[in-house]
Simulated scan of single mutants.
Amino acid sequence: MEPLIREVPRLANVTKDISVTTQLRQELRSNGFAIIRGLLTPQEAKSLRPVVRRSLKANGRYLYGGKFQLHAMYTTEEVARFLTSDVILARLKEITDPLEVVLTGECDLMINTTSSWHNDVPHHPRCKDGSIFADDTFRVYKIAFYLQDQGDDSPATLKVRPRSHLKGVVESLPARGLGVKAGDAIIFDVRIEHAGQMPTFVDRSLRRFCELAARPLHLDAQKAFTLSRAILRRIAFTQDRVAVFMTFGPAEEQTYSYADEGRLRHPGTRGTLSTEVLAQLSRTTYNRP
């Protein structure tokens, strides 16, 4: 099987730009997010789009006007090989160094879903008393690849509230859109408040109509909403919004605790990684998801 992305030297031979790595870590600690420009080539991002679409067609759930798939690296070999490639793991290691990288096993695919403002820790026990936001040693992140160009002001762009990962400790900054080119990677703290494509008035009205019609017509409301919305997108010649997410952190208790909570929330949704992917993780000494 041909690799989706180019090969790079093994981690021991990767030359690091210390100033860039330091800035990356500082942005994550201070603002809760950072953008790595050009981590993939545009062609590599383009090659991944049909892989994600096929995986979602086979395994995705209808949700929020699109389709969503949990733990995709266990079901789709190309996604697993992509996310465990040297070119990606090398950048993750720069963030967690001197500790090894832990992949929590959370790897999500999505297409055309809508979302409101949220963070990714509401299930965590320490979210209830707010202590998780006051902990400046907490370092669990997601890496996100949006596989199409998205401008700062595009409705499809990921939006964040900088510094909201430390709410109660520092004041959050106004929300901003994170414009990216296909191939850029966004790293963000799982505690930060963020939103994807916000539902429009038409989206909200259509979803409400599908929910009302679902019971008497014996329909799946989420599926009906997604398929109806897809028709409207095609009529308007709107490009599909496709993304890949993976959660990681350093090899320390905070990361393992977050991974354990994720397993409790979604039991029985994982499989096994291929021999080739496990060998890659073993060669690079990364902890297995």
Rank of each mutant, 00 (worst) to 15 (best):
T226Q: 06
G38V: 00
F245A: 07
V180S: 02
S30L: 15
L63Q: 05
R263K: 14
I18V: 14
F68N: 03
L56V: 15
E2G: 04
A34V: 03
E193L: 07
R176V: 14
A279T: 08
F82Q: 12
G183W: 01
A58W: 08
R215A: 15
N31F: 12
I88L: 15
E106Q: 13
L232T: 06
H266N: 14
G66Q: 08
M110H: 02
F82G: 05
I187V: 07
S116L: 12
D136M: 08
V101R: 12
I132D: 04
K159H: 09
I192W: 00
F33M: 06
P42V: 08
R91P: 07
D129T: 07
F237C: 06
R161V: 14
L24Y: 03
R270P: 04
R163V: 10
L173T: 09
Y286I: 14
V190K: 06
Q150D: 00
L24G: 01
G177W: 11
F33R: 02
L109T: 06
I35V: 13
G183A: 04
F33Y: 15
A182S: 08
S205I: 11
D220Y: 00
K142R: 13
L232M: 09
P155L: 04
K128H: 03
D97P: 03
R270H: 05
P3C: 01
R270E: 13
V52S: 06
S274P: 05
T113W: 03
A224V: 09
V242Y: 03
S257T: 14
V52A: 11
I35C: 04
A12C: 11
Y256A: 10
R215D: 11
A80W: 10
G66V: 09
P9W: 00
S172N: 06
R234K: 13
L264Y: 08
Y286N: 14
E77W: 00
H194S: 13
L40P: 00
H165C: 10
V121P: 00
H218L: 09
G151A: 12
Q254I: 05
D108W: 03
A243E: 11
E44V: 10
T113H: 01
R81L: 09
S164L: 02
L173G: 02
T285Q: 10
S47G: 04
Q280I: 09
R265G: 00
A243Y: 09
A156W: 07
D260P: 00
A144M: 07
E211N: 14
A224Q: 13
R191L: 03
D136W: 07
W117E: 13
A45H: 01
Q148H: 12
A279W: 04
